[in-house]
Nucleic acid binder design. Structure first.
Lengths: 243, 243
DNA sequence: AATTTTTATTTGTCTGACATTTAAAAGTCT
DNA sequence: AGACTTTTAAATGTCAGACAAATAAAAATT
């Protein structure tokens, strides 16, 4: 019999967890300096390399940063929205690419979340954000644009839509959903006609936002979702039964 | 003049990034075995401790796992929803606690996202999820429940609501928004009367879900958001001008 | 007083060793 | 031959001690 897996974690993992707990519980406040590696070795009764492995684990999560030199050391990071945002994007991207999430599932999630932002965006969008969106629409209408560039512009457009809600927590949460879709979107080849259709829907969205008409934004997003899923469906069909 | 900050990253960070890129780009596929630490030392021309620090960084992001023993080594992790989920929760929790996000901002984001799930949940919720929600409502009605236990039950209730959408990507994205709010919610003291009101709203939500009435779910969520924000407002007022 | 030099501290990196775990190979017995 | 035990080799985990490099503070110099 194997009595419980006995998951004795590595020392470095244990130490990382102990420090992480201290940070999460507020025992170690932002910008506080941790003891030096030598002191931590003493405290935890392990060697310095082991302590260092623990610290690198925390650094990988943006929980601490390190500085060399006198009065240097490891400091508790005041997690910025940017840091959290980029972590969110890489995690989401990997999750979508490695877990074989269907395009429909990802797409459904993305548009459900985006529609959640729409009413707030319609209410609060700034002139600046409207300008960004119109600029991206213009870019999307340029002939000779690669599919990748079209997708990248699409991401920028939708990020502006999300940012319009003027809620950093929403922007952060949505970052993953929107950007992680990009690799999936890149599998679609956009014909001139489909680009035109998307640009038309984007224009409807901006116009509705400018008019602060939340219902119209929602309706346009619903149409855009359907159209996007239809495009993906066509790609799948064509693959199954090529010309 | 300082020409560009010259952020020469640590060797371990560079190596971690190189391997990360290989994973993200699909060059290293899931469950693939990385070269041994000794081989990596050779390839990157650094010492083994440096390689190990790099590997620990990747392990902290659940990108790899390591196994000791003969045919052991570092393997590319097939990122599971659970892993991504827990990372999402810790990042979100830290972000909310360290960035002094206002209760209103967090609450607005949370309910906006939850309402995004509501229509899908109303359509797809299983009997199992409804039962979970009703069980939590019953637990919430028990007298003598601590505020913390009440909050925890609240989280379980809302997670069931989100899971009802039967979209793992949505569940993953929402995990952070819902669970990260818990520390903020814990600052609220729930009177018998406010608990009763919340339980009433929860019941409205479950009933509407059971009836597959999306609009009614949405309306109940709107009411719940307003009520929650009112409670937080009361706490803030009471603190400013105590009895 | 301002500038330069020195010094001490701390992280970054290396070398080499040993401990521990684990799967596979080799050996042994029935 | 087949099942069991023992040995072995490969890999990660951990340690100790050293030196390099960066950096801020202290000391010395102009």
């Amino acid at each position: 019999m194997k009595t419980a897996p006995r998951k004795t974690a590595d020392l470095s993992a244990q130490i990382a967890q102990a420090i992480r707990d201290a940070i999460v519980s507020g025992e170690l406040i932002g910008d506080a300096r941790l003891p030096s590696e030598a002191e931590l070795s003493d405290q935890f009764q392990v060697s310095r390399p082991t302590v260092r492995e623990a610290l690198k684990r925390l650094a990988a999560q943006s929980l601490i940063r390190t500085q060399r030199g006198a009065s240097g050391g490891a400091f508790v990071n005041r997690l910025s929205f940017e840091d959290a945002y980029s972590q969110q994007v890489t995690t989401s991207t990997l999750l979508l690419s490695m877990n074989a999430v269907s395009f429909d599932t990802a797409c459904e999630a993305r548009y459900a979340l985006e529609r959640a932002c729409a009413p707030l965006s319609a209410q609060r969008r700034t002139a600046d954000q409207l300008a960004t969106m119109r600029a991206e629409i213009f870019r999307q209408s340029q002939p000779g644009l690669t599919d990748e560039a079209f997708c990248a512009s699409d991401v920028t457009f939708h990020r502006a839509l999300v940012d319009g809600a003027e809620n950093p927590v929403l922007s952060y949460q949505l970052a993953g959903a929107v950007e992680a879709m990009q690799p999936l979107m890149n599998m679609i080849t956009f014909t001139a006609r489909s680009r035109e259709a998307i640009i038309g829907l984007h224009t409807r969205i901006v116009d509705a936002l400018e008019a602060q008409n939340a219902d119209a934004v929602d309706a346009a997003l619903v149409d855009l979702e359907h159209y996007t899923r239809q495009l993906a469906q066509d790609v799948a069909d064509r693959k199954r039964k090529p010309a």
